[in-house]
Design a protein around this nucleic acid. Structure first.
Length: 253
DNA sequence: ATGGTTGGCTTCCAA
C-alpha cells in the first residue's frame, strides 16, 4: 500500500501537478494540505476520472485538507474534538482497516505571536485525541504538514533557525509526545542522516541550495510501523513549473 | 544581504 502526503499550496494553482503526480505515482492514498478551496469548488470529478475517490474539508483562501484514495473513503471527523476552531485543518477517514488522520498543523508565525499559542493549544488537543485514536484503531496513519522539524538534523541550519517557529522546544516536545504515545516517524525508521527535507522557502533559491526543513511527516501506529517498507521524499515536482514549496512524502506499507 | 517569493475574497495577510 502506497500512502503519500503533499502540501500543495492552492489546489486551484496546483491541480495540473496533482493530476500529473497521481498518474505517474498511482498512490493508494494521497493526503493534501492547503487546498485553499471552499468545498463547492473542489474538483472531485478531475480525480474521479483517474479512478480516485475524494474527501475534503476546505474554506476560502486559507487552509483546507483533502484525501484522495483508490478505495472508497469513509469520513469520520473534520475537526479536533472539543476544540473550537473555524480553520479547516483536519480530515480523519478510513478505507478498509486503515484509518488516516490528515493534518495541516498551524504554522505559528513567530514565538511571540497569538498564532504560536494557538498552535501549541492545537497540538495539545491533538495529543489528547490521539490517545483515544490509538486505542480504537490499531492501523492508524497520522500524516500531513505538521509544521515541526523534530530535531536539528531536520534543519539545514539549526543555528539560523534557533528561536523560530517550526523548531522551538515546545513544538518539538509536542511532536515527541506523539511518538511517546506509540506513533513512529516512518522516515526515521529507514534514514538517520540529515539533509532530507520536505519544504524549502520560495525565496533565496532555497531549493537549489537545499536550504530546507523536514516538516511533513508520515507517522505510523506500531502495527503499521512493523510492516512499513520505506519512506522517502519525492523532490521531482519541486522542479516543475510553478511548484509548491513542499514536496510529497511517500511511504510503502 | 534582517533580504527574498508565492497565493489569495490582494493594495495586506499568511506562509
Amino acid at each position: 500500500m502506497k500512502i503519500a502526503t503533499w502540501n500543495i499550496n492552492s489546489l486551484r494553482v496546483r491541480l495540473p501537478h496533482v493530476l500529473r503526480w497521481l498518474e505517474s505515482q498511482r498512490p493508494d492514498v494521497l493526503a493534501l494540505q492547503e487546498t485553499k478551496l471552499p468545498d463547492p469548488d473542489f474538483p472531485a470529478e478531475e480525480f474521479t476520472r483517474l479512478g480516485y475517490h475524494a474527501a475534503f474539508s476546505g474554506q476560502p483562501a486559507y487552509n483546507g485538507v483533502a484525501l484522495l484514495a483508490r478505495a472508497p473513503l469513509t469520513v469520520e471527523a473534520t475537526a479536533l474534538p472539543d476544540f473550537d476552531d473555524a480553520q479547516k485543518r483536519v480530515l480523519f477517514a478510513h478505507l478498509d482497516e486503515v484509518h488516516i488522520l490528515n493534518l495541516y498543523v498551524p504554522n505559528g508565525q513567530s514565538l511571540d505571536s497569538d498564532k504560536y499559542q494557538y498552535k501549541l493549544r492545537w497540538l495539545e488537543q491533538l495529543n489528547r485525541w490521539l490517545t483515544q485514536l490509538l486505542r480504537e484503531h490499531p492501523q492508524l496513519v497520522v500524516l500531513g504538514d505538521l509544521n515541526i522539524a523534530p530535531e536539528d538534523r531536520d534543519v539545514h541550519d539549526p543555528k539560523a533557525w534557533e528561536g523560530g517557529v517550526l523548531v522551538s522546544s515546545a513544538e518539538r516536545a509536542a511532536f515527541r509526545s506523539l511518538l511517546e504515545q506509540g506513533l513512529q516517524d516512518s522516515f526515521r525508521l529507514f534514514h538517520q542522516e540529515g539533509g532530507h527535507y520536505s519544504w524549502w522557502d520560495y525565496r533565496a533559491a532555497a531549493f537549489r541550495r537545499n536550504l530546507g526543513l523536514r516538516i511533513d511527516h508520515i507517522l505510523l501506529s506500531p502495527a503499521l510501523a512493523g510492516r512499513c517498507l520505506g519512506t522517502h521524499m519525492d523532490r521531482e515536482p519541486r522542479g516543475w513549473e510553478r511548484p509548491s514549496d513542499h514536496v510529497p512524502v511517500i511511504t510503502m506499507l
